[in-house]
Nucleic acid binder design. Structure first.
Lengths: 146, 146
DNA sequence: TATTGTTATACTCTATAACTATA
DNA sequence: TATAGTTATAGAGTATAACAATA
């Protein structure tokens, strides 16, 4: 059972699963930081690149929602990515207030390598039996509605 | 199947589970931010309070590892928590270089309410069947080695 | 020599408010 | 009136390097 719960009674299965999930993510935090550092990117810059999918222009507002921060912060984050030639701002056709972000060729390359490293499952999952891995995937598919 | 994989071939079960897990955490990010904002705490401050368990003094170095940042950053983060009366620095008995962090009574109260909100499982997990929730918990127990 | 925690520095992130140009 | 993005500002986080105290 999970240690140090707020209450003294044992947590529900969902609660314990959620806490263990958070613990697993925490353990992998160092690996993500290492990947970011290798490309000299800050964490918000990493999430920004991950948010932008090749060939899919995205409005800056969407990035602010993804990063859970104010619109104004996105300006600086994108400024720096643009200065490094990783993304470009393009005017949106349907609404002249909106600017779309697109990955440059260099940006796509960096993103691909970044995703390759970050999306690799942690050792804790790799070591599970094939059955557990498939059960886990199926449960998450149901949880996420895919 | 998970969209937008780096390669064209379908990912392993562990990889897909890992990516969906990340997506689920991302969806809950806003909820954690809201809890932090309610107590006027930054995210590093939240992780710091969560790291400190009641009655368990922890060296500052351990907090740096938990936050995955340099030792020098912890000084400022703890300074601000201490200024708000949430934590206190105490000298460690066994090594005079080390300072231990302890939660104040107020700090314990804030931490407890913070954990109560953050540890509540997301809707996506709550809506799973009882069997799925238990399966999920058991798989995570095996993954985390508990 | 190595480690813990601090200070100093420069850069980045963050929320807020005020602004523009659109809608 | 409302929205997308920018600018300005102040506070906080971050890595790095240098330092004092201790091991």
């Amino acid at each position: 059972m999970v240690r140090s719960m707020a209450s003294t009674q044992s947590p529900s299965a969902a609660t314990e699963a959620w806490i263990l999930m958070g613990r697993l993510m925490q353990c992998e935090k160092r690996r993500v930081h290492a990947a970011a550092a290798e490309f000299e990117l800050s964490m918000p810059q990493v999430w920004a690149l991950r948010h932008l999918e090749p060939g899919e222009p995205a409005p800056m507002r969407g990035l602010a929602e993804r990063l859970v921060c104010d619109n104004s912060n996105v300006t600086g984050i994108v400024d720096r990515l643009e200065a490094r030639g990783l993304v470009a701002r393009t005017p949106a056709a349907h609404d002249r207030r909106v600017k779309h972000l697109v990955l440059t060729e260099k940006g796509e390359q960096v993103r691909q390598e970044l995703c390759r490293r970050i999306d690799a499952p942690p050792e804790a999952l790799e070591q599970l039996s094939a059955e557990d891995q498939e059960r886990l995937r199926d449960i998450f598919r149901r949880a996420c509605g895919c």
